[in-house]
Amino acid sequence: MILVSALTIAVLFGVGSYLLLQRDLIRVVVGIILVSNAANLFLISAGLSRGQAPIYPLEEGVEVSDPLVQAMTLTAIVIAFGISALLMSLVYRVYTSHLSLNLEDISEAEVREEESIESREVAED
């Protein structure tokens, strides 16, 4: 079970990373979401002591799953949610200012801008 959990986390993280490397801004955001999911899954499996839900009344003698990791995962999920939402609207604004969703166009704009600024400053010495 430990190995399976670790592998699943690895797959989530790896696929997320793969998407982070794409040209499409939206895929990049998907990548971030997947990577966050990997972290959430890791958090909750850090309490692999599975058992009944930690809600009173508790059955005697049966293992209780770790409530703290659940609380942490919850918090992490919500934080990731808020940030992903912000990131998505950022994608939209990047689109409206560059009129492209392609990172290549955006990098090109960056290089172009940098060069135009540099050429304004005449090199000296």
């Binding site: 993280f13 790896g14 990373s17 793969y18």
Partner: peptide, 11 residues
């Protein structure tokens, strides 16, 4: 390749 490396360290 990069994704594999990333997956590897997460793993």
């Amino acid at each position: 390749g990069v994704a594999l490396i990333a997956g590897f360290f997460a793993f």
